[in-house]
Every structure is written in C-alpha cells, then in structure tokens.
C-alpha cells in the first residue's frame, strides 16, 4: 500500500487522539490561565480518573449491575455509570489535592507551584501503582471489529465514534459554561485580571475551586477515553500524553481553552500522519518539534491571547 492512500485513515486516527488531547488541553489551559501555573500533575490526574473508573466498574460488576454492550459499542450501562461517577469523584479528588498541596503555595511564584506539581505527579502515579500495580488493566476484553465507511475506505470502530461524540458534547458544554453562566464569566474575568477580580468582589477562591472541578472532570474524561481507545490502562497513561497535551496548549496559545482544542487536533493529526513517513516511536518527538517551532515562530500560539 502506498503512503498517500494511508493518509485518510491516519487523519481519522488523528481526530480520535486529537479529541483526547483537546480535552486534556482545555483542562491544562484553564488551570494555567486562572490558577497561574503549568500543572505537571495533570497527566496523572487523567490516570487517577481512569483508575477510579476501573475500580468502580469492577465494583459494579460484583454488584451484578448489567453491562451488556449498548448497540455496537463494546461496553454497556455498567461501564458508563462507573465512568460518570469516576468523573465526579475525580473532580472532588482534584479539589482535595488543591487544598492539600497547591492552595498552601498560592502566594508563592508560579515556578514553585509548577515544581510542586511535578512532586504531586510522582506521588499520584506511585499511589496508583501501589494499589493497582504497574501492569496493564483491561477495561474491555472483547475485540471490536472496525466498520468500513463505504466509498472512502476508512475504517473506524463504534467506540472511536463514541470518543469523538463525547468530546464534541464536552467542548460545547464547557463553551456554554464559560460564555453564559455567572461562574463561567467570573472564571474568564479572573483569568484576565486576578487583582481586579478581587477588587470587584468576585470570590476568587470559589473560582479556583470551580476551575479545579472542571479541570478534574475533563482530566478524568480524557483518561477514561484514552482507556477505551487503548482497551487497557497503566499508571503511566496520562504522563505519556502530557507532552503532547502541553504541545497542544502551546500551539493553540497558552491560557486559551479554545486554542487548546485547535492545538489538540493539530497535534493529534500530525502525530498520526507522521507515522506514514517515520517510525511510530517518534510520535512524541513530532509533538515536541511542533511545540518548539511554535515557540520560535509565534510564541503566543495560533489563536494568541484573547484580548
């Protein structure tokens, strides 16, 4: 098969991994712009969400909550229920992590917060490893047959369509929240000018709690979707994606959640398409090269700062 004929298929894979990167990127971007630091623990927050879903799922199976596959999907009601609870629990857990770690360092520089997030990342990953071990844990054991889209010759699995649809729904929800709710507007105001937000009477501590909850929920969703796509999860799941997520955030314009969506898609697609030309092992290097080029050519990113 020649290289060019593989590209449409790789584009589809790119959109799938781009979806997961976009969700993570929105979370990293919101935390960066409102709370003010690059959160290196974000990947491990994704893994935390994925493992909470795993734990709840096995609990639900032991309670004999049915999990017969929904339509063409490889999972059923039991797994979706576990995922929804895991997203909520991760949001709460991330707020707790903030109270234990980041909130105590709030008056320090962003470098201190960033360094502490690296410590938080290691701690979180090792806690997961302590309870579940370093080995792969399977979400879904059965093999799903990809559907061929007639005419285009593109193969896509129903689970992958599910990943893209969930991403679209969440992007729309986050957009509506930021644009139309009072708390969403207060989050944008705090990102714009933290000092003025306080002078205006905006309760910035509540804004921070909301930011962590949304960031945590998005992290858990991205982690679970990555688990669905890979079929299995490991404690390294999020850490391995973090570089690509940071690249997506820088590419789109750091601190701009809309840029993170564009950046996530561009990184996801470029990484996948690059495998037509260079070995798959170089995927992270591709993300890194894009990030460096963007920082040299246009450090404000594709969408720049929203001013």
């Amino acid at each position: 098969m020649d290289i060019l004929s593989r590209i449409p298929q790789l584009l589809v894979y790119g959109v799938i991994s781009g979806s997961i990167l976009s969700l993570g990127g929105i979370g990293v971007s919101l935390i960066y712009s409102i709370i003010g630091f690059s959160n290196f623990a974000y990947g491990d927050m994704m893994a935390l969400g994925a493992y909470i879903a795993l734990g709840l799922f096995s609990l639900f199976v032991s309670w004999s909550i049915p999990n017969t596959p929904l339509g063409p999907l490889s999972f059923g009601f039991g797994f979706i229920l576990a995922a929804i609870f895991a997203i909520g629990l991760t949001a709460v857990a991330v707020v707790l992590i903030d109270r234990i770690l980041f909130n105590r360092l709030r008056n320090h520089s962003s470098v201190i917060l960033m360094m502490s997030s690296i410590g938080g990342a290691l701690a979180l990953r090792n806690i997961l490893q302590f309870f579940w071990g370093p080995q792969q844990h399977y979400y879904i054991e059965r093999i799903q047959i990809a559907t061929v889209i007639p005419g285009l010759g593109i193969r896509i699995k129903p689970d992958q369509v599910f990943i893209i649809l969930v991403t679209i729904v969440l992007v729309v929800l986050v957009h509506a929240f930021l644009k139309y709710t009072k708390m969403g507007k207060a989050m944008r105001a705090t990102a714009d000018n933290n000092a003025l937000a306080r002078v205006t009477g905006i309760n910035t501590d509540r804004v921070i709690v909301w930011t962590w909850m949304i960031g945590g929920a998005l992290a858990a969703t991205a982690g679970i979707l990555a688990g669905i796509e890979n079929k299995f999860i490991t404690p390294e799941l999020g850490w391995q994606m973090l570089l690509s997520i940071f690249a997506a955030v820088v590419l789109g314009g750091i601190g701009n959640p809309y840029g993170a969506i564009v950046g996530g898609m561009v990184i996801g697609i470029t990484e996948e398409v690059s495998t037509a030309f260079i070995p798959t092992g170089y995927k992270p290097a591709v993300a890194f090269i894009i990030m460096i080029l963007m920082l040299i050519v246009k450090p404000t990113g594709l969408l720049g700062k929203r001013r």
Partner: peptide, 10 residues
Amino acid sequence: PQVENIFPSL
C-alpha cells in the same frame, strides 16, 4: 484602579 481596571477579553 489607575491601570488594568477592566477585563479585556470580556
């Protein structure tokens, strides 16, 4: 305040 007294992206 004298400067930065608005939320520019709003």
